[in-house]
Design a protein around this nucleic acid. Structure first.
Lengths: 102, 102
DNA sequence: AATATATTTAAGCGATAATTTAATTAAGTC
DNA sequence: GACTTAATTAAATTATCGCTTAAATATATT
């Protein structure tokens, strides 16, 4: 599942939101939702595979943290897409300006 | 389906990419993919519902164009999430700096 | 060593999504 | 008005997703 699909699920987006505020143990993340720990664990795996979060083992706990690189990559795709679109607008504007001057 | 889920599908992301370059007729969009026109038509509906693209009727053709507002909203969510994360980093840095000075 | 705690992995199931073929709608063309 | 073209909508099928319960793994506690 790619990054965008990973963030397509509202629960996973909420998890990313939580981790933007603070690193958290898997259990603490699960406690924020109605779903069972296994369900959240599976969401975390999706986010890991998408490089949106990282884990670190500490004893029997696992501390999850945000991986901003994954988010940056998504932001870059969106930004680039919008940049190309804006570029078209600018090109159109240039044409109109030139016609105006004739 | 929310915006992120809409862009979760690679075909739909490719459609958005095409429309960032130029407005296109539904049929021309479909021609870029292996899938059948009905499949693409349904993808276009998902993108429309997510306010990522717009349609304009012209005779029996439908011209699709990018709706940058939808992309902007996504970029804003990502940006805000990263901003919060960066804020944490800055806060940590401040604490360390203060400890250094003691 | 036995037991408890934290988390993940496995297996199965219902819901949703993506795709296909067939039918429909609507606008041009002869 | 019949026919073609452009695109969508409907119906059916297959694939994928997210969830649950049960089992497994690994660390800590007594």
């Amino acid at each position: 599942m790619d990054r965008f699909a990973a963030l397509g699920d509202p629960t996973r987006r909420a998890i990313v939101g939580l981790l933007s505020q603070a690193d958290r143990r898997a259990g603490d993340i699960a406690a924020h939702f109605d779903a069972t720990p296994p369900a959240i664990s599976q969401h975390l795996k999706v986010l890991r595979d998408a490089s949106l979060v990282r884990v670190e083992r500490r004893g029997r706990e696992r501390i999850y943290s945000l991986d901003p690189d994954g988010l940056a990559a998504m932001e870059a795709w969106i930004g680039e897409t919008r940049r190309v679109w804006n570029g078209r607008l600018d090109a159109l504007k240039t044409v109109l300006d030139q016609e105006e001057r004739q």
